[in-house]
Amino acid sequence: MSMNGEYVRLTPDELERVIGDHEWATALVEKLMDADARRRPGSAEARCHGTDKAWDAIGFLTRRAGFLVDIVHGEEQVPWGEDWGYGPPRYLSPDRVRTAAEAMAETGADRLVEGVGPADLTAAEVYPVGIWERDDSLEYATGHYEALVPFFRSAAEAGDAILVWLS
């Protein structure tokens, strides 16, 4: 079984309801994921986004780059705390989404991996352990990061929050 990073954009009203109602949150997220699966929108138009197994590498690289927002794990925990795979979801408020989007706009993939090699991810035991020595391993991580940038930018422009979890 693998661990995958998952993201869902939420309006402020949706976030308020998600925080207070686990069952409604589950139903909303399923509905949004189904809709995006049918429509297959680009990252900027999507309500849902996934980073596959690149989530830990993205976290490693963004921490190393000095990001002030945890774009991989979120920052605020939902109070109902139900497990959505590997723990409960967390979220980023609209203000934190905006801060993250600004940092991401300033930090292209080339800058993110500047001075980092596959051996660094291996030494740090970044999940999934054992893949980082492949020639294309950094491209795998930066490709997922680059797809996440317009997702965050669009959420910030709309004033949305983002729900984050590992499934």
Rank of each mutant, 00 (worst) to 15 (best):
S2W: 05
Y7C: 03
V8L: 14
R9P: 01
L10S: 09
P12C: 08
E14D: 07
E16H: 11
R17E: 10
R17H: 15
H22V: 09
W24Q: 05
A25L: 06
T26H: 13
A27N: 01
A27E: 11
K31M: 11
D34G: 05
A35Q: 13
A35H: 04
D36F: 00
R38I: 11
R38T: 07
R39M: 10
R39S: 15
R39D: 15
R39Y: 08
G42H: 04
S43A: 12
S43E: 12
S43I: 05
A44E: 15
E45F: 09
E45N: 09
E45Y: 08
C48K: 02
H49I: 11
H49M: 15
D52R: 14
K53S: 13
W55M: 02
W55Y: 09
D56V: 02
G59L: 04
G59S: 01
F60Y: 09
V72Q: 00
E75N: 13
Q77I: 00
V78T: 00
P79G: 08
W80C: 04
G81D: 07
D83P: 01
W84P: 08
G87K: 04
P88T: 05
P89R: 00
P89D: 03
R90N: 15
R90T: 03
Y91W: 13
Y91I: 06
P94C: 01
R96H: 11
R96M: 05
A101C: 14
E102L: 02
A105S: 11
E106W: 06
E106I: 10
T107I: 04
G108Q: 07
A109P: 00
V113T: 14
P118Q: 15
T122H: 12
E125C: 11
V129E: 03
W132R: 11
E133V: 10
R134Q: 15
S137K: 06
E139R: 13
Y140G: 00
Y140D: 03
G143D: 07
H144D: 04
A147K: 12
A147Q: 13
V149R: 09
F151N: 00
F151K: 01
F151G: 00
F152L: 02
A155P: 00
E157T: 08
E157F: 10
D160M: 00
D160L: 01
L163Y: 05
V164W: 06
L166C: 05
S167E: 15
